[in-house]
Amino acid sequence: MEHLGLWVAAFLTLGIYSFLYRDNPWYKLSEAIFIGISAGYWVVTLFWDNFYGKFWVGHGEDPWLWVGAVLGFLMLLRLVPKIGWISRWPLSFIVGATAGLWMMNYFSSNIMLQVKDTIMPLFGSGYTASAYDIVGNIVVAVGTFSGLVYFFFSKEHKGAFGATAKVGIWFIMITFGASFGYTVMSRMSLLIGRMDFLFSDWLGLIK
């Protein structure tokens, strides 16, 4: 049985890799299996975790959970063409909740915290910083400032303002480069992981 599992896993692994050559029946087969099995996996997990685990078990103690169930039910009214418009209620509920919840979250974590962290002495506490740190600090302050200038919508990027925005986009590009370079290595290790499966677990060529 374990042996069979290994062969299935290897068959599917190679099927997905065959996509790199071109679309082909092997990939289509792997894709069809992937979609069917994973969609089924999610329904089952959602049912047991969310419906059974959160609603069914909890609704006696917390009658508020009925609000979720009723909204969920209203969602299904889409299937009845005449009153399908009622399904916009749960939808607008979700949109309102998402907007309200995230607005304040982003407010504190993205705006307040970042602004606060940028306020720091350029020359270190009591002028103790090395030249290296001073350059770094100045770069952080200037970069954050000019980056914000780049995002300004209500002013044309011209003259001194445009020049600052230009500096801003340079910083943003360096940031993107840094994340790009940082990620390349970890992506390579994913490939190594799969090769390790094929050559050692499945074929047993590498011990």
Binding site: N110, Q114, D117, T118, V135, G136, N137, V139, V140, A141, V142, G143, T144, S146, G147, L148, Y150, F151, G168, F171, I172, M173, I174, T175, F176, A178, S179
Partner: peptide
């Protein structure tokens, strides 16, 4: 330094 600055502006 520069990466942090760019991140902050984006965030």
């Amino acid at each position: 330094s520069p990466n942090l600055a760019g991140q902050r502006a984006i965030i």
